[in-house]
Design a binder for these strands. Structure first.
Ligand SMILES: NC(=O)c1ccc[n+]([C@@H]2O[C@H](COP(=O)([O-])OP(=O)(O)OC[C@H]3O[C@@H](n4cnc5c(N)ncnc54)[C@H](O)[C@@H]3O)[C@@H](O)[C@H]2O)c1
Ligand SMILES: NC(=O)c1ccc[n+]([C@@H]2O[C@H](COP(=O)([O-])OP(=O)(O)OC[C@H]3O[C@@H](n4cnc5c(N)ncnc54)[C@H](O)[C@@H]3O)[C@@H](O)[C@H]2O)c1
Lengths: 211, 211
DNA sequence: CCACTCTTGTGAAATAGTTCGCAATTAAGT
DNA sequence: ACTTAATTGCGAACTATTTCACAAGAGTGG
């Protein structure tokens, strides 16, 4: 079987395309050219076509893409044709914001379990979900067959929690703590580092000033 | 004047290196080799050396880098040798979490102004800062000479707020809303798209399953 | 002061990702 | 049926980034 390695940048763009297509659907648009999509998300039309070409031929020459069809293909490519259960670890400021965010559910991501090690927080309700003690984490991951964990604990606790999640059989982790985590290569890890984002801005501002 | 274009990936790694060096400083470590840094942040040692080479020669052959020195250089390269005032627009769930986050101040980013258009929220205190009405935004940006804006408003309001910020003279925007924003190319824009991050995980989980 | 070890800095090679350019195909107009 | 205009899919060219590999120092110990 021939398996191409898909650039991560491509995957990220696919996600953005799919959201833009959703917007077009809402607006009642039936077809869109690669150029229209490109304009909408701020890339080149060749880029759009190349990205899609990794996965098949979805368009019609001379016409463009049917919005509903392409949207369906992208959802399926991204693994969004079924819902995902998520466990959120650390119900602090950031964790609470994420837990209450509607945007995730809209894309099929459901925060079905929230755990924290602070007794004062355990028992609180975030939306429909009650914060449970950290001790039940392993059990919940196993019994609910949760594949995705979101980490919003302090950096000092991050590796520890990660090890427990991995042991419990988690398959992917989205880490918000500013710590480099070690995971076996069977587990997919992504880091969202907000300070890094600000510092890239700061770097560019600094550059502009000098040149 | 010779100006090298620095890959964005390099800049992001510099930020991570600098944080790791800070950690080493705390631990009382005096020198670190490129290999040690590489291990600590999960890249190759050649990558570390190449990244640093864009900016100068900071190490000593046979020895490595003086942690305090290199840390200082990186802070300066990243424009972190002075503090930055930030305006936060949208004091909702995510905005509040960001406003109260200590990690930013530690790196020299100070949320000095917070604005929102919801009368029920205006007047609330987030840490030391009082949420002000959206109407004062332009004035605050100008009078405090704020360069960086953080956007945590709903997608529907994002472009509108952006236009106002640009008009007020903002230089850089960190956008958390899932909308592609248009800004003049004199303004630096970065997007933090949390749904995209989850969808990349979902894509990879989906792939693993199939192959 | 020489031999040995360690580790940087950096060209060159390898890999990865983006843009270009156009043949192929479709639809619409005549 | 033919012509024209639009737009995809895709190989080839180009550009960017990472990795390799090693000469050039720098410290250490005899
Ligand atoms: N708040 C932000 O805007 C923001 C921005 C960028 C990064 N972060 C990072 O996100 C993480 C969380 O930030 P926050 O501001 O929400 O902090 P927070 O202190 O409000 O929340 C952390 C939560 O984790 C819980 N916790 C601590 N140790 C735990 C453990 N071992 N097991 C389970 N739960 C545990 C705490 O009880 C607390 O509820 C931190 O790593 C922070 O650096 C936060
Ligand atoms: N909460 C999350 O975890 C999360 C995750 C990913 C993305 N986001 C994005 O971040 C943004 C904010 O999310 P949130 O959950 O904090 O929403 P929220 O509704 O809690 O907060 C939005 C705030 O913006 C204010 N606002 C609305 N229009 C405004 C305007 N024109 N000018 C000034 N203020 C205005 C509202 O009054 C509200 O306080 C959204 O775009 C959302 O998609 C949030």
């Amino acid at each position: 079987m021939k398996v191409y390695k898909i650039p991560e940048a491509t995957v990220m763009r696919l996600s953005v395309y799919s959201r833009f297509l959703h917007q077009l659907l809402d607006e009642g648009v039936n077809t869109a050219s690669s150029e229209a999509i490109a304009q909408g998300v701020g890339v080149s039309s060749a880029q759009v076509r190349k990205d899609l070409a990794y996965f098949g031929e979805f368009g019609t020459r001379g016409v463009g893409y049917r919005v509903d069809e392409l949207y369906g293909h992208l959802k399926s490519i991204l693994g969004l044709d079924h819902d995902w259960n998520i466990i959120l670890v650390g119900a602090g400021k950031l964790g609470s914001a994420l837990a209450l965010y509607q945007g995730f559910a809209e894309r099929g991501f459901h925060v079905s379990t929230i755990v924290d090690n602070d007794k004062k927080i355990v028992g609180n309700k975030l939306g429909m979900v009650t914060v449970e003690p950290i001790e039940v984490m392993t059990q919940r991951v196993k019994e609910k067959d949760i594949k995705v964990g979101v980490l919003t604990v302090p950096a000092s606790a991050a590796q520890n929690v990660t090890d427990l999640l991995v042991e419990a059989g988690i398959k992917a982790i989205l880490n918000f703590s500013p710590r480099v985590l070690k995971v076996p290569n069977t587990v997919i890890l992504r880091n969202v580092d907000l300070s890094v984002n600000l510092e890239v801005l700061s770097f560019n501002l600094n550059m502009n000033k000098k040149n």
